[in-house]
Design a protein around this nucleic acid. Structure first.
Lengths: 163, 163
DNA sequence: CTAATCTCTCAACCAAAGTTGAGATCAAGC
DNA sequence: GCTTGATCTCAACTTTGGTTGAGAGATTAG
């Protein structure tokens, strides 16, 4: 048993991730290495695959939080098998399809609506607040969907924007 | 001539943007309202369309900086016409097509590579550092493409990740 | 045994896109 | 004329995904 575990430096070279990034991922509970007698992190081989998965998921635009949730579905009591990983990553298929569909819809709307130069806030389907092509995660979007009251605004009295 | 201009509050209600966001956009030189005698911002009708454009561009995932560059191509000496806006937004078509293509390639790679459960760092096409499905803008990606040296690593001595 | 590396923790910092609050001023209704 | 309500500026804080030191301790090579 060469059971000493992989050091963070080695793992860094293997995955291309900076040690600081790996420590950060531990902080975010994406990996949970053991510790040696001196306090050093000891990773397992399986962690290489785990980090690989994380990198791919990031590339697909998932946030750390989402990735953590996804990883939570792995069996905790044993080292994940190739099949576990396959099952997990197959979900991305659907997500990607959905994302492509969103972009295609956006493109069609663009053809139909911006294409005409109207850019009207009231009529334009582009203003559907539900789909942004951007990531779902980043920046201060924690109050997205918070559109102001629009309260005592009866008509669209003067919204037309011709000149 | 009811030439008093639109106040920031009214513009906020018209566009759904928070006043703070509009001020921020002025800060970032995306809009340049006039000022009333008391220092209040005075927007024009054309600014409604300008902000609409900004919102759409954001939705498509462009950063403020990119949007500023795009807006710079508008004629400065006169109020932009519908045609100006159409010309500008037509460029998005190509960008969207490109983005859709990237996602489709990612999806195909996913089918071929993750699908098999290998997740190998060396062989997997998913590790092409060039295309991430995420936004091009946000987060600390100013050092993306900075992959560590990989220097004195001759072979792939023990990268296989079977268990 | 000692020097050269690695690692450790912890705090501070980066960028993006804004928000939030304080304190002051402006505009408008009655 | 006065009191709301809107706006002003400016600084500080938010989130995400990390990086960059500082100072201390651990490991390893010679």
């Amino acid at each position: 048993m060469k059971s000493k575990g992989i050091t963070i430096g080695t793992l860094s070279k293997r995955t291309g991730l900076a040690p600081s990034a790996i420590r950060y991922y531990e902080d975010q509970a994406l990996v949970a290495p053991g510790r040696g007698p001196g306090g050093q992190r000891q990773f397992e081989k399986a962690d290489i695959r785990r980090l690989s998965f994380i990198m791919i998921a990031q590339k697909l635009g998932f946030s750390i939080r989402e990735i953590r949730d996804q990883l939570a579905s792995l069996p905790g009591h044993r080292t994940p098998t190739a099949k576990d990983w396959r099952t997990l990553s197959e979900r991305y298929r659907g997500e990607l399809d959905r994302r492509i569909a969103t972009l295609e819809r956006l493109r069609d709307d663009l053809d139909g609506c911006i294409g005409c130069g109207c850019l009207s806030l009231d009529k334009c389907r582009l203003y559907n607040p539900d789909d942004s092509a951007a990531r779902h995660g980043p920046g201060p979007r924690y109050l997205m969907g918070d559109r102001p009251d629009s309260g005592s605004d009866t008509g669209d009295e003067s919204v037309e924007i011709d000149e």
